[in-house]
């Protein structure tokens, strides 16, 4: 899922700026699960903004609402009226949610309340880790189900660099060496010989390097009459 975290309160305040009427929009999917932008976080942030602005002598009207998914038009339709009544929408969705709101409500000023961090999973309660870089050309079948693009700090394809020590990455001892993980799994599964093959340079066109990406599925598209 998409992992995000809330921006510092000072930055949020400056993004809201002088706007008087603020709508904090939470999102009920990924950012709810990572406790960054669900209905609870939206309510807490709205209350915090109300109190802080009041203490500042400039009380704002801050309300909150949470939609199931900010990244789908039909869910955004349900808040159209509330959106049109405010000066600014403070989205607690990921970067996709913010842009969906901007695209769906062309006359509305929308600002992000979160920093979208990465694609990952909750490793344990309160800890989230990156797992996928969305490179568009999955190689997990070659690397024992551990992604070197996302989990090696240098995205190497032919094994660990010289900075791997005691299972850690040279960048930070908190980062497990992605290639050590791959090595250990290949070894345990009796497939170490896969590491001896030279992997050619990656085709990064499927990643962001090919420009903004798009997928079209003709079989799923509605005909023009519809």
């Amino acid at each position: 899922m998409i992992i995000a975290e809330q921006k510092p309160f000072e930055e949020i305040k400056s993004l809201v700026g002088a706007a008087q009427k603020v709508l904090v929009v939470g999102c009920g999917t990924c950012v709810t699960v990572c406790f960054a932008g669900g209905s609870r976080e939206a309510a807490i942030l709205a209350a915090s903004l109300r109190m802080a602005s009041k203490l500042n002598g400039d009380p704002k009207e801050v309300s909150d609402v949470t939609v199931q998914r900010q990244c789908e038009w039909e869910y955004l339709d349900s808040i159209a009226e509330q959106v049109s009544a405010v000066d600014v929408v403070l989205s607690l969705g990921c970067g996709i949610g913010v842009q969906a709101i901007a695209e769906h409500f062309p006359k509305t000023w929308v600002v992000p309340g979160l920093n979208t961090a990465f694609l990952g999973l909750p490793a344990e309660q309160g800890v989230w880790v990156e797992r996928c870089a969305a490179c568009g050309d999955c190689i997990l079948g070659l690397t024992a189900g551990v992604c070197p693009i996302a989990r090696c700090s240098k995205s190497l394809l032919n094994g660990p660099c010289g900075g791997s020590q005691n299972g850690h990455c040279e960048v930070n001892p908190d980062i497990p060496c992605g290639w050590q993980l791959i090595y250990d799994r290949l070894k345990a599964l009796g497939k170490l010989e896969m590491l001896y093959e030279i992997r050619p340079p990656k085709n990064w066109r499927t990643s962001r390097d090919g420009g903004p990406r798009k997928i079209v599925r003709p079989d799923l598209r509605l005909s023009e009459e519809e």
């Binding site: 240098k154 394809l157 040279e170 050619p200 990064w204």
Partner: peptide
């Protein structure tokens, strides 16, 4: 391969790592 930029004096830099050292040799 190259030391990671976080060690140096421009840790804010975007790194490249388009290819790795083995692929560089091949190239």
């Amino acid at each position: 391969t190259g030391d990671h930029q976080t060690f140096g004096n421009h840790p804010q830099a975007k790194n490249v790592f388009d290819i790795d050292s083995v692929q560089l040799i091949q190239m």
